[in-house]
Design a protein around this nucleic acid. Structure first.
Lengths: 244, 244
DNA sequence: AATTATTGTCTTTCAAAAAGACAATAATTG
DNA sequence: CAATTATTGTCTTTTTGAAAGACAATAATT
């Protein structure tokens, strides 16, 4: 949400986009969550509005870039959230109460507040990225952005926690078909690293021998040289995604 | 679309819902498409807007009921359509040109037209119904409603044809898991009828023996008495969906 | 009673997934 | 430098599940 200048006709009214960005680090699946730069603990998914002359997919990419600095990420719709009671009202009231002076600084007037506190329908998008490729930079309302393990989320505003869980379900359903995991690994990697990634996403173990076969049979990996780790064992091969 | 009184603040702006309703008849999958009651051949999916105090799922059901008379149908979201150029403008201009006098009758003024011809984001919903249970009644802008086989669609406005194809893809992906086919069959039916339904939806044949096993193994059917058809062969059993 | 078309179910075949087995390393140890 | 160790790459076997084939059991007709 860009709180600075949501002038009525610049954006579509009462429609927003929320982004669930999954990343992978330390063999764990994590979610990117900014903390808002206001007094009080407000964590919210990267979100924003749709400009009048902008595709919704474009808007999702722009919002993600503005809030986090992430560019060129493939985002995918997973669900629309639109119950009648779904509004920023409760959250904004708490924010206003805790930040009586700061609101002026942000250029927040009653008009803007009224615009923001109406009932909102939100389109949920999700993506997968490689945490190590990511250069985070905070947006203008985000004090700090952090990766949280999916089992250790902070307390999120509105229905953002539900959004994360539904995004995760969708990711698990689609992972094999769409190979979205592409984004999550470094340029080159071992099969074992792919397996650890899958195990983090599905939160369950896979059999080593069969996992290797399943992945290699897909013919999407290109085998490179061996990777010598210095350990007392056979060195694994390093792979990268085939260009096609 | 209720063209009669889309007062600005009664509905969420620039957000609509389109319904793709699949029905089954004569061993064919069909789609419910109303023809608009204007001069000129305007076919459009049952569509409408979301009231301020209404869940989007509720809105979808209301819209479907208003436009077609279908009540208590389980609808499911399948996609949001939201390219920047997506608007009613072209279609409305053609409609206005062909219906210079009729617009007054409908209470369409320039203000309303302006509201309608902006860029719209639309949430696609789909459902499956039993054509024989359906009692169609036209909404106030629909001259007639008809079921069209999915291979013989009329020429639809905007991106409605694309919507139908994406809805069909989603249906095929989800049919087994969600058993939405529930709605499509009469109260009691034979396995063969279920098979014909599947064959209509997937547009391909299934092996009789294995299909029977696959369906019965799911344990969702309750076997009733036999069905004597008067034909010179063994009578099939009649089933119904288990209540649970 | 023989014939016919179709159903319900069993068996066999084929294919894919899961589990098991083992040789080939790449270092370390003594 | 041979024995040891941990891990990888791959093959074989087992299990499971889907596809195909086979056939008896009808319910009416001839």
């Amino acid at each position: 949400m860009n709180l600075k200048s949501p002038r009525e006709q610049e954006y579509i009214q009462q429609l927003s986009i929320d982004c669930v960005i999954f990343g992978y680090e330390d063999e764990q699946l994590k979610v990117l969550i900014p903390k808002l730069d206001f007094t009080g603990d407000f964590w919210a998914l990267p979100a924003g509005f749709i400009q009048q002359e902008e595709d919704i997919d474009e808007a999702a990419r722009r919002i993600l870039a503005e809030r986090t600095g992430l560019a060129d990420i493939y985002l995918e719709q997973f669900r629309v959230f639109g119950t009648a009671k779904r509004s920023n009202k409760t959250f904004m009231e708490r924010l206003v109460a805790l930040n009586p002076t700061k609101l002026d600084d942000w250029g927040l007037d009653l008009n803007t507040l009224g615009w923001l506190t109406r009932r909102f329908v939100s389109i949920g998008y999700y993506a997968l990225v490689d945490i190590h490729k990511v250069n985070l930079q905070k947006g203008n309302i985000d004090a700090s952005i952090q990766w949280y393990p999916i089992r250790e989320l902070p307390s999120l505003i509105m229905d953002h926690e539900e959004m994360i869980h539904i995004a995760l379900d969708t990711l698990r359903l689609n992972l094999d078909q769409k190979l979205i995991a592409y984004n999550l690994l470094p340029e080159t990697f071992t099969i074992k690293e792919v397996q650890e990634l899958y195990e983090a996403i599905y939160e369950r173990p896979f059999a080593r021998n069969n996992f290797q076969k399943k992945i290699l049979d897909q013919q999407v990996l290109e085998r490179l040289e061996k990777k010598f780790t210095g350990a007392a064992n056979k060195a694994p091969y390093v792979y990268r995604w085939k260009r096609y």
